[in-house]
């Protein structure tokens, strides 16, 4: 008897093979792209040129998908991905003007734009001021930027950001949203922050244990290193110096694995952009 290793049903396997046929696919693609003009452009394809009316032409599927706004959602299958709204040059100039006498936080509140974005706009505008390119590129670069700026949807008063968000690093929040009349005391707070009650913390701070203190002091004294100098003999250039060290805290033990030999060593970059290994001794 023949053993069937694959758990995929035969029907599914057949379908997959049919959809993966190279000749069919290229033919289908050609059909979808449409006819070429004498210059080789697919002028009849609606996605060949980018729209210039601040309404992006994102891909449309044959079946209409409920809840999808094809000027905002670029992908038919994922409605959580949205394009951002571009800030017009006029608004950017206004922000720059306000920046002379207002704090970025105030500007953020005034226009409903994220604080980080406001700061970035001010920074980029200052870069733009001193920006210089080759004369041959000026016209083309201007054409490029106008095409891009005319493509994305414009930021307006209906599309303001939510300014009360705070990014966190955990899946379980350290922040809790509660109603004003909801009771909330220090014990509840300690639970959320996973802290011990203040009572125990204060107790440990005020109590003074003499024995513990003496032990710690003794340990510090024991740690003091003693240096022994060797005898300088004739013809020797330097004096040998012996330092007291604990076994295991100094040098490498033969055969033990070392950090610098590992494949996923932590890396960083210095001020010149050169890659360096972090913690070479660990």
């Amino acid at each position: 008897m023949k053993r069937n290793l694959s758990t995929t049903t035969r029907l599914l396997r057949f379908n997959r093979r049919a959809t993966m046929d190279k000749a069919n696919l290229t033919k289908e693609m050609k059909q979808w792209l449409g006819p070429k003009n004498i210059l080789g452009d697919y002028v009849k394809n609606p996605y060949f040129y980018p729209n210039q009316n601040n309404k992006p032409n994102y891909i449309q599927t044959q079946k209409k998908i409920y809840g999808r706004d094809s000027t905002i959602n670029p992908f038919p299958l994922n409605q959580y991905t949205k394009t951002n709204y571009i800030i017009s040059e006029d608004l950017k100039d206004k922000i720059l003007e306000d920046a002379t006498n207002l704090h970025p936080q105030e500007i953020a509140h005034k226009y409903g734009i994220n604080l980080q974005r406001i700061e970035a706009i001010i920074k980029l505008k200052s870069i733009e001021k001193d920006f210089k390119v080759k004369d041959e590129l000026v016209e083309d670069l201007k054409r490029f930027s106008t095409v891009m700026k005319n493509y994305f949807p414009l930021f307006n008063h209906q599309t303001v950001d939510n300014l009360t968000e705070i990014p966190t690093k955990r899946i379980n929040d350290r922040f809790l949203t509660i109603e004003e009349n909801e009771p909330f005391g220090p014990v509840d707070a300690a639970k959320i922050l996973k802290l011990e009650p203040a009572e125990t913390t204060l107790k440990s701070l005020t109590e003074f244990n003499l024995e513990d203190h003496q032990k710690k002091q003794q340990a510090l004294e024991d740690k003091k290193v003693s240096v022994v100098y060797g005898k300088k003999r004739e013809g020797e250039k330097s004096v040998f110096r012996f330092t007291q060290k604990d076994v295991g805290t100094f040098g490498h033990r033969y055969g033990a694995s070392r950090r610098d030999r590992k494949k996923d060593r932590a890396i960083g970059f210095d001020s010149l952009g050169k890659m360096i290994y972090l913690h070479p001794n660990n």
Binding site: P50, I86, F131, L141, F144, M148
Partner: peptide
């Protein structure tokens, strides 16, 4: 300069990056 064909469906303005196309 003329835009590359078919860039329209892929051009997505990210929310975590602020871009200046002029520079």
């Amino acid at each position: 300069w003329y835009p590359k064909p078919f860039i329209a469906p892929f051009a997505i303005l990210p929310s975590h990056i602020e871009i200046s196309f002029d520079t």
